[in-house]
């Protein structure tokens, strides 16, 4: 489902060349889960954005759902994401002016689905927020916001879910509940999961693991 070959990212900052990611290779079959772990600044989020096609690599290739990302332009990658990928972010990324329901409807509407409101309602129900569908993010707690984000990520039925520190902004208790929900929905939907985290306990729940330090893989456990 997801495959990386010799992946690297090279940037020039303050007139100095910097390899923020080098030589990452792995393969992830459909339905499997991968945790990308490492300390802050180790290159986890950079790797995630390359895998999801949010950014282009300096070297190497990524194959997502059978498509070689390097052969696609920015728009091609966006269309592919729309078709196969879902996202959960550390900072939730809910649009503040939209209600919980409208936030979940957004990817469905982008896909032109006529049943957007109905499907979004069902997913809010699944994450236990049916009663708060008309609330805006401002009036929801952090845990509730992330549950809305989970509903938004799963609603269009993605093949791959990219999660960037999904519990990073939450306290331990809430974080655990959100993580439980994430794995539960993932299992039920049969989605391939790519999870970026620095939480070892969360990482341990994934089948495969990739540990990064200073942009390099220092430990790789395959599924």
């Amino acid at each position: 489902m997801l495959e990386a070959q010799g992946l690297g990212k090279h940037v020039v900052a303050a007139n100095e060349a910097l390899d923020i990611l080098a030589d990452v290779s792995f393969g992830l079959p459909a339905g499997a889960s991968l945790a990308i772990v490492g300390a802050s600044g180790s290159g986890k989020s950079t790797l995630l954005s390359l895998l999801a096609g949010l950014d282009a690599p300096s070297r190497g290739t990524v194959r997502l759902a059978g498509e070689e990302l390097g052969t696609l332009d920015e728009d091609g990658r966006a269309l592919l994401r729309g078709r196969v990928a879902g996202f959960v972010f550390q900072s939730f990324q809910l649009l503040p002016e939209l209600s919980a329901l409208e936030n979940v409807m957004l990817p469905l509407e982008l896909a032109g689905r006529r049943d957007a409101a109905q499907v979004a309602g069902q997913w809010l129900d699944r994450v236990g927020l049916a009663a708060r569908r008309d609330h805006t993010p401002r009036t929801l707690s952090g845990g509730e916001q992330q549950r809305v984000a989970l509903a938004r990520a799963f609603a269009p039925g993605p093949q791959v879910l990219f999660a960037d520190e999904p519990t990073g902004s939450l306290d331990t208790h809430t974080g655990e509940r959100v993580a439980d929900l994430l794995f539960e929905l993932n299992a039920a939907s049969g989605t391939t999961l790519v999870l970026v985290t620095h939480d070892e306990r969360l990482a341990a729940r994934c089948g495969a693991r990739l540990r990064l330090a200073a942009g390099r893989v220092i430990e790789q456990v395959n599924a």
């Binding site: 949010l54 728009d75 966006a78 269309l79 729309g82 996202f87 649009l95 990817p107």
Partner: peptide
């Protein structure tokens, strides 16, 4: 700006 970035992430093309 945030909404646009989210749209692109969720699969909207530049033209869209």
């Amino acid at each position: 700006a945030d909404a646009v970035a989210l749209f692109v992430t969720l699969g909207a093309t530049r033209a869209r």
